[in-house]
Design a protein around this nucleic acid. Sequence first.
DNA 1: AACATTTTTTTGGACGCCGAAATAAAACAA
DNA 2: TTGTTTTATTTCGGCGTCCAAAAAAATGTT
Lengths: 418, 418
Amino acid sequence: MREKADSDLVRRQNRLLLLEALRQHGAMARVDMGRHTGLSPASITSISSQLIGDGILEEAHTPHTAAEGPQRRGRPTTQIDFNPKGANVVAVKVSIDGLELALADARGAILARRTSRSATHDADSAAFGKLVADEITALLTKARVPTRRVARVGIAVQGVADSQAGTVVWSPAFRGRNISVAAAIEERLGIACRVANDANMIAEGLIGSDRKRYGGTAAVVFMGWGVGMGLIINGQVYHGPTGAAAEFGHMNHLPDGPLCRCGRRGCVEAYVADYSLLRWASGHAATQPPSSNAIPPDDMLALEAAAHRGEPAAVSAYAKAGEALGFGLARLIAILTPARIVLAGPGTRAMPLIRPHLERALEQGVVDELRRTVEIEVVPIDTDMIIKGTIDRALRHVDREIFAHGPLKKGRELETVA
Amino acid sequence: MREKADSDLVRRQNRLLLLEALRQHGAMARVDMGRHTGLSPASITSISSQLIGDGILEEAHTPHTAAEGPQRRGRPTTQIDFNPKGANVVAVKVSIDGLELALADARGAILARRTSRSATHDADSAAFGKLVADEITALLTKARVPTRRVARVGIAVQGVADSQAGTVVWSPAFRGRNISVAAAIEERLGIACRVANDANMIAEGLIGSDRKRYGGTAAVVFMGWGVGMGLIINGQVYHGPTGAAAEFGHMNHLPDGPLCRCGRRGCVEAYVADYSLLRWASGHAATQPPSSNAIPPDDMLALEAAAHRGEPAAVSAYAKAGEALGFGLARLIAILTPARIVLAGPGTRAMPLIRPHLERALEQGVVDELRRTVEIEVVPIDTDMIIKGTIDRALRHVDREIFAHGPLKKGRELETVA
DNA sequence: AACATTTTTTTGGACGCCGAAATAAAACAA
DNA sequence: TTGTTTTATTTCGGCGTCCAAAAAAATGTT
């Protein structure tokens, strides 16, 4: 109970209700909107016609060929969907070896992509801001979309992002700390911009893909070059008080454990991440500082093969990873008891090697009653999930902050209409 | 966005807004309500006069003696407050050695108390339901308050409560498991009833006492006969998907650690709880099953004194507790980064002994950047906080579920009016 | 006694919802 | 072909709640 209720709130809330139904179920007739929102047909007519007038939705004039099933009696429905020209969003994924960009329309369809191998590692706020802004401009030029049509930019990074301040607090992609990103983009391009952790964006994408399944309380653990986590609490991706994401990867497993990239010892990541597995297997001391170079995928494949062949060092590396991951999840369950834990990322390829040890750790670490209520599933996520999640999140934000507000009288003059 | 918005929602929301302002700041004039809620004077007049008509609020006809400050110019204000006769609530605290009850009016003032030493340990659902119902009846008889005036009963227990099902999943107060409580009360007395974990009720009480301070994201750790936690996320006490509270006490600290009451090994509780400290200090094997008897407070005082005198076994017990607690909090911070961690309960008496080890563990277990954003404070909580929190929570629920709904036309005929 | 100042109530208008009735657009039936 | 049935959508009038502006109330000040 935050906001006072008046007719303005009613309009926003119901417009948003309708937009959300459309996002979730795709194009639908007015009747279906009524079913999904609980609003009366009269209200649906009124709201939808306004949204169409605002250029946000449009009636599908499909020659009804794609009509599902046999034609039923009665007046045929007219499908309504987002107007693709209503607004655009841009998603940017920052990784160690470059940038990946995508431009999407209001329906979430990707219109153009762009990849850049520019080195970001040594960039400071100014340089990185310019780089991203230039890349976005190039992407828009290619797609012939004017800048003012872009309602929002979402940026996903590995590491700790402060989404409130719009900065990258710490990331393996940068040598520096507290790189300010959002402000630079907003200043250079005049587009609202949001920075977020990449695991959170995967969580966002999962919510978008199946609200039933992932909409309650769930944790998404990303295993690969590092270990990240996105937390969904009551259907919302959790950003802590400071806007930073959960740092499951840097949760301690054992005091005085192996050295982690973050400088502490015994973090979960120092057992489970790619570099950690290789370090165990190569017989190097656990106190050896982890390499900061990117790891060629082939190295991991070779390690997995070795473990499958039964080579002791490799087998034991995965055993240690499984135990650390299992106790980590056990601790997570003790605190939050999420309904579902999703393991994702390239690291899950080795799940058959890890799983038995993970399960054993869970048995040791969690009371049976709790363990049974948590479902653990493995989703081999294609990397594009980060981009898609970023787009999803940006669009949901546009729905809420721009589309739901109705005819933008005064104030921002964002040209969202064709 | 869950609910469709219509005039009904508007009324509920604004009535609730006003009631919450009143709960938080106490009696106030209509002007102040306008300031707190953002509603226009016209609306405030309308809403407040309806609430008064419903018997929920009342004008204070104090002879303005208590008027603060020198009389100012202009029409004097009329204070408005909850009508104490609007509704009553009952709070019940269940502990190992008996029941503690309190009856409060709509302002939260406690009208009557009752303590009972009845043994609950061997009770099953039926017997316990009867016991609680009888105790409540006796309390009401003493206070001459008819049963139908009680809008809600809140029950706080140690251990795991499923607040959705209204059952006690597991508690040191009971030998049995899954004791159904809420249903029994509702059936016998016809009063809505809610079961909750006692640490959660402390959290609820803290929110009520200082929303600014505890209203964001915070964790309340209770240290004493056991270790419990209440989690506040975005201003709301978190109840997991199953309605169970956080089980910080049974979060694993070290694999193969000391045996815990829950049957696992290495739980935080097995280092920090009263029985664990005594076990370390007495030199018993860590695999010795913990005693299930209540521990006399004097034993703990003696142990503290021994540690202050520097007896090695006692000192080391507190060192181990501090380390376990510190790493436990470090893991909590990695996952949620709460803005504030509150340590509470009798166990905090020994904080001077524990603190240095706790701090050292935090340094080892948490990235500096995160550690700095978390404030850790010690609050020596009087036991009554659980009762007060339970009352608070019950009243807030009455505000939301009954008072905000307006003149109860059809349906429930709960006589809330004098 | 007249004015100033602050709080509270009254009045009239706006907005957005809803139910009921009307209209639209098809399939089906004679 | 023409009417009937069926389903989708729009139109219309009423209702509830908000707000701004004006009025009333209650007191202090001059």
